[in-house]
Structures are given as structure tokens and as C-alpha cells.
């Protein structure tokens, strides 16, 4: 089965790109390839000018660890770690010094000051996704990949998360690629790419507008 075919896109630093399309159209595969989580069977994905196909597991891991931040639809917080511990986890994995200090900064950024000691099950859905955003940003990645970040949240909470992403993109200059099936959400992005059956629709702007 081909998940993506004939897709050529260039994303510049600081962009906020929305990727829309129906379920199974290849949005997640696109993000996985962009985030060095997967390798294309044909073609190439360049991150920072280097093809992922030429990277070994250690280099791909380094890309994920240093250059990419992920946000998932179902938050994917580790249930055994507190909120702040979840946030500092990427820094610990990279053996960064003083991870707690940086994690608390991010907790403040996402508006969860004082909730750091709570375990995931003690947080609401919106709060969990904010923790996930903080975790994705804690190591200051160049790109934030968000896979249906509001797919599991109510409208009000979704709006808050989208505000947060916009704020991150605008104020921190972080490049964001967000997969969503919601046109309203996609409207928050600077560019929209439409995927259909693994291909980009002709009207999708493949370069920054």
C-alpha cells in the first residue's frame, strides 16, 4: 500500500503549515517522515539539508532528540511520570543539564504553573495536551510536528491549544507542521497543504506563500 506518493514540499523556518485531509490520506505518514520517525521507500526527506535516508539510527535519534518536537492526538504522556517530569524527559534523554529549570519555564509558558507535580490522570484533556506541547518544546526544536493535536479535545479547549501553537510560532519562531482534519483549525496556519489519497492536491502551495 502506498501512503504517500509524488509529494514534494519545502517548508521554511518559522512557517506554520497545516496539513489537512481525510483519515488515512497520509497526514501521519507525512509527519513521521518529516520527523525522522520513518524513512521513505522512494524519494528523499531532507532535514536541515541532510537526507534522512543517509542517516543511521543514531543520527535519526539525534534529529528527533534535538530538532523535532512531537505532539500527538492522544497526548502520549507517560502515566508514571508527573507533568513536569514528562516535560523534562527529552532533556534527560539527551543528558542535558538542569532539566527541571527548563521544564518549569515551559510549564509556565503553556500556562500550567503549579501543576507540575500532578500525574497525567489528575489533569484534564486540555491540560494534558499543554503538557505535551511543553514537552515537545522543552529542547527548543526547530520544528514542531503536531498530529491531530486537538482531535481529542472539546471546542473551547481546542481553541486554547491552537492559540498556544500560534503564540509559539509567532513569538518563538518555531516551525510548526500540524496535521488536522478541521478546516477551522487549519485556518490558523500560514499555509495549508491538502492531502488526498497520499498525494498533494494541485491547489496546495508547495512553497511558502
Amino acid at each position: 500500500m502506498t501512503a504517500l506518493s509524488d509529494v514534494t514540499v519545502e517548508i521554511d523556518p518559522g512557517e506554520f503549515v497545516a496539513l489537512i485531509g481525510r483519515s488515512g490520506c497520509g497526514k501521519s505518514t507525512f509527519l513521521n517522515l518529516a520527523g525522522a520517525m520513518d524513512l521513505p521507500t522512494h524519494g528523499e526527506v531532507h532535514i536541515g539539508g541532510v537526507s534522512t535516508a543517509r542517516m543511521g539510527d543514531a543520527e535519526l535519534t539525534a534529529v528527533r532528540r534535538e530538532q523535532v518536537g512531537f505532539i500527538f492526538q492522544f497526548f502520549q504522556l507517560l502515566p508514571t511520570l508527573s507533568a513536569v517530569e514528562n516535560v523534562e524527559l527529552p532533556l534527560q534523554l539527551a543528558s542535558q543539564p538542569r532539566p527541571r529549570h527548563r521544564a518549569l519555564e515551559l510549564m509556565e509558558l503553556v500556562g500550567l504553573n503549579g501543576l507540575g507535580d500532578r500525574l497525567p490522570y489528575q489533569l484534564s484533556g486540555g491540560q494534558m495536551q499543554r503538557v505535551a506541547v511543553a514537552r515537545a518544546l522543552v529542547h527548543s526544536p526547530a520544528v514542531l510536528l503536531a498530529d491531530e493535536p486537538i482531535g481529542n479535545l472539546d471546542t473551547e479547549t481546542s481553541s486554547g491549544i491552537l492559540d498556544l501553537l500560534q503564540h509559539i510560532n509567532t513569538d518563538l519562531g518555531t516551525t510548526i507542521v500540524m496535521a488536522t482534519h478541521s478546516r477551522d483549525s487549519a485556518a490558523r496556519a500560514g499555509r495549508i497543504l491538502r492531502l488526498s489519497d497520499g498525494r498533494l492536491s494541485p491547489e496546495s502551495p508547495t512553497r511558502p506563500v
Binding site: G35, M37, D57, A58, T61, A62, R64, R65, E66, F70, F72, Q76, L78, P79, L89, P90, L93, A94, R135, H139
Partner: peptide, 13 residues
């Protein structure tokens, strides 16, 4: 799933 998340977050094998 947790191990998968760890790998995504940059954990090495």
C-alpha cells in the same frame, strides 16, 4: 506505547 513515545522523544535504542 510508552517505549514508542520514548523513542520519538529521542531515546536511543
Amino acid at each position: 506505547a510508552e517505549l514508542g513515545v520514548l523513542r520519538v522523544l529521542g531515546a536511543t535504542k
